[in-house]
Design a protein around this nucleic acid. Structure first.
Lengths: 298, 298
DNA sequence: AATTGTTCTTTACTTATAAAAAAAGCAAAA
DNA sequence: TTTTGCTTTTTTTATAAGTAAAGAACAATT
């Protein structure tokens, strides 16, 4: 079996966009534009179209391509389901991550052990290890074997992750290279406002989560320091690893989204010091909440 | 050929230690202690011993093991040469990095291209890509191919790396989990004092560099926040990639080592706020010097 | 008792071939 | 001219057998 199913991932993401109304009914989905968006060729995109057609989300017009069908209650729920069922990573990756977080596996493992335990092919294992290395919770031992690194399993560790964010995120605004990216800013505001306008009740969980993460990462990206941006991306991926199972509290999402909009205002006005201050307060609040119960998307 | 030659790396590192006088003449090198130090088994260590014997650095006593031979001018220079020739990574890794930094290669590559260009095996390529991904300057494209990221090439990159250090390193002292690690502290001070006492002229470059890096990483490690520690490790690896070609200015090393010792004093005394302040000043100075010429190990 | 030297076992790398997937190319339709 | 639908080419993955390397076990030596 192919390691990850590119068409499936593309289809899932498009389903999410359609369900969220980003791709209105009757609009023409040109294969090349979708391909460009995902930076792939048209081949996997066509495969994705066929999957979406099977779900009743798009319609093919012979020699004219694919068009978005109007959403019905049926197709809408199908779209949301497909969007969330298709996580962006191989099943075994999450299985390993979960085993590690739950202490179901030792901290030094051999490749054969993993191969055997998760019933995967060598190249799938390679992909998983590469990813885990990139996300910083696995490293190769000098000889044979891999070492699983400490990860935010405990409440204390979660807090430590937030302390790193507290250091990095407010600092991004103060980088000398900070440049406001209007289109990105407008895109963010648009999403956030729609969430506040009720979408926080409708949209699939992973989309809400993704928008929250994107908000933080985009702002850090505007800081113009790629290493800062990279550091935050890693922290967020690590966070995702731990939080992906937890239910989202949709009312907390609303509260946090309002804070996000509050931060956006001074950024748009060019008051970066104020933005930095608000961001610090925002992350600090999230850190405080970590002493409490469930998990949101600050 | 084996991907990286573990015995060679171990031999090189031991050669460096012997040349630096860390392993005095006639001392007995027990295989297990060396194996533990590198967290490998005795097998590659024995192979390393044989290589060192060939270089005249150690002597085997039948059934008693290996012993350090007194350094002669000849063996000393051989040791330094071997230590520096054997970088801690596959040749092709640095070849690729250099090609990228020097714009000798496009920003999107296929595996076959790399396989062919650097004449390496598939698994060696996998190792190289995994490492580059971990260090954050390569990423997998969604379909086929890999994308080389511009992080490592821009002129500002060095300064931006230092700005991240400026954020993270002083903060480590202020973590609520900071715990002084006396043995580590003593080890650091010992190395630093020997450098100041003249070793800055003698010791091989990579050892001087490594001690500087270790100083910073160990202090951050004592902060007790593994994510902070990890972030700094990444920054340092990237720094190494950018700096690995540049000559070391041994007098700058001396100056910086003195600053390192200055920072150690308040740490040992438990005055972490002062240590944090001194660290900030130290890194800030190094950042300022980046406007100037050559490169040291701040 | 600790450590070496050696043997045996496990683990991972190499290489090659087949198959699957994605990318690239191109003629036909809109 | 753009975009589709289809074909061809390239790239990567899957699988498996053979080899090299590292790890583990154990008797011999100090």
């Amino acid at each position: 079996m192919k390691q990850d199913a590119l068409p499936g991932r593309i289809a899932a993401e498009m389903a999410s966009l359609i369900a969220a109304g980003d791709m209105p009914a009757e609009s023409h989905l040109t294969a090349q534009s979708i391909a460009d968006r995902f930076s792939v060729s048209r081949s996997p995109v066509r495969a994705a179209f066929k999957m979406l057609e099977g779900q009743g989300l798009v319609r093919q017009n012979r020699n004219r391509g694919y068009f978005v069908k109007p959403l019905t209650a049926r197709t809408k729920s199908a779209a949301m389901k497909s969007a969330s069922s298709n996580r962006d990573g191989p099943r075994a990756y999450y299985a390993l991550a979960e085993d590690w977080v739950r202490d179901q596996i030792g901290d030094e493992v051999t490749e054969t052990l993993l191969l055997d335990r998760y019933r995967i092919s060598r190249s799938e294992l390679t992909a998983i290890l590469t990813r885990a290395v990139a996300e910083g919770w696995i490293e190769r031992k000098p000889g044979y074997g891999w070492r699983l690194l400490p990860v935010a399993k405990t409440a204390e560790a979660q807090a430590q992750l937030y302390r790193v964010r507290l250091l990095l995120e407010p600092a991004a605004f103060l980088e000398p290279t900070f440049r406001i990216d209007r289109p990105a800013l407008d895109g963010l505001r648009n999403d956030l406002e729609r969430i506040c306008d009720g979408a926080y009740l409708d949209w699939p969980e992973d989309r809400l989560h993704a928008i929250g993460v994107t908000f933080h990462e985009e702002l850090v990206r505007m800081g113009g320091n790629p290493f800062l941006h990279q550091a935050i991306q890693r922290v967020n991926r690590m966070r995702r690893l731990l939080e992906y199972r937890s239910m989202i509290d949709r009312h907390r999402i609303l509260a946090e989204t309002r804070e996000h909009l509050e931060i956006l205002a001074p950024v748009a006005a060019g008051d970066l010091v104020e933005a930095s201050f608000l961001m610090r307060r925002h992350v600090a609040r999230a850190l405080e909440r970590k002493s409490g119960p469930a998990t949101g998307t600050p």
